[in-house]
């Protein structure tokens, strides 16, 4: 399989006062299409910097970043904006929903930047929110939702444009452990179904243990780049999600009669909705 994300001698140097801090030092990584890749490391190791470089949020000091065939490290800001519209999705630690917009409008925002007409993009956004089990919350403002619900809106927003790659910077950092697991379950479920490459920065080893690939950064260098064997990650995933016991109403009230049935239903909806588009994925 060809690498969808590829870096060459990626180097990033920050000037802190008069000192120069090398945040990334000749990082070379490959992430393959459809992979779930976790970037782990201690605070200050440079893992967030790496994600920023991969997503084109920052220009590298030296080196190249490719997504597919495109060298995003050489793109202008406007080219990057268009590239993000077309190919990338983002999930943020602090959700970053626009406070003046409803859940549906927030999800529809990337489509608005693309120029999709209002009716069409709201319909797509609502479909995506239903997949996330937020059918009843579509017209709510972010302030009227729990953290878990807000993050699910964030996930819907990342997936709405059918991106090739989704980047997430500690998406569960502000959530409790149960909600974190639920959020991760949703993301994995969707990205596997749609063949989306998912790159996540995380602190939590238990979440990272579920990844296809674990990249460990230490002092700006790649310490290890491990492709986990299928049986290991399957085992870790089963262990992680076992505690959920089918409780997929993320951040919502715990006990509901229909809880057990919900994930299955969501999965079905998701499959039906996305079946036609999965084939178009690169």
């Amino acid at each position: 399989m060809p690498a969808i994300i590829h870096t060459e001698k990626l180097r990033k140097v920050y000037a802190v006062g008069k000192e120069r801090v090398v945040a990334l030092n000749d990082v070379e990584i490959n992430v393959e299409k459809g992979e779930f890749c976790c970037i782990v490391g201690q605070s200050g190791s440079g893992k967030s910097t790496l994600l920023n470089q991969l997503a084109g949020l920052e220009k590298p000091t030296r080196g190249k970043v490719f997504i597919g065939k495109h060298e995003i490290s050489a793109m202008s800001e406007n080219e990057l904006a268009e590239f993000r519209q077309a190919h990338l999705g983002f999930i943020f630690q602090s959700y970053n929903l626009l406070p003046s917009m409803t859940a549906a409008e927030n999800v529809a925002m990337p489509l608005m930047f693309k120029g999709v007409p209002k009716k069409q993009r709201l319909a797509l956004a609502k479909k995506e929110l239903k997949n996330m089990g937020l059918g009843a919350r579509m017209d709510h403002l972010p302030t009227e939702m729990s953290g878990g619900q807000q993050q699910r809106v964030g996930i819907a927003r990342a997936f709405v444009g059918n991106p090739k790659v989704i980047f997430a910077d500690e998406p569960t950092g502000n959530l409790d452990s149960t909600t974190s697991k639920q959020v991760l379950f949703r993301v994995l479920d969707l990205s596997k179904k749609e063949g989306t490459t998912f790159v996540m920065v995380t602190h939590e080893p238990s979440l990272a243990a579920c990844a296809d690939r674990i990249i460990t950064i230490l002092d700006g260098r790649v310490q290890s780049n491990v492709l986990q064997p299928d049986e290991v990650k399957e085992k870790n995933r089963t262990e992680l999600f076992a505690s959920l016991e089918g409780n997929m109403e993320i951040g919502g009230a715990a006990a509901k009669p229909a809880q057990a049935a919900e994930p299955a239903k969501t999965a079905q909806n998701g499959t039906a909705a996305q079946a036609g588009e999965t084939g178009e994925k690169p």
Partner: peptide, 16 residues
């Protein structure tokens, strides 16, 4: 500021 950053990340062009 943050909102503008988010919009940029989500693909809003500079001109817009």
């Amino acid at each position: 500021t943050r909102e503008i950053g988010v919009m940029k990340v989500l693909g809003c062009e500079l001109g817009h």
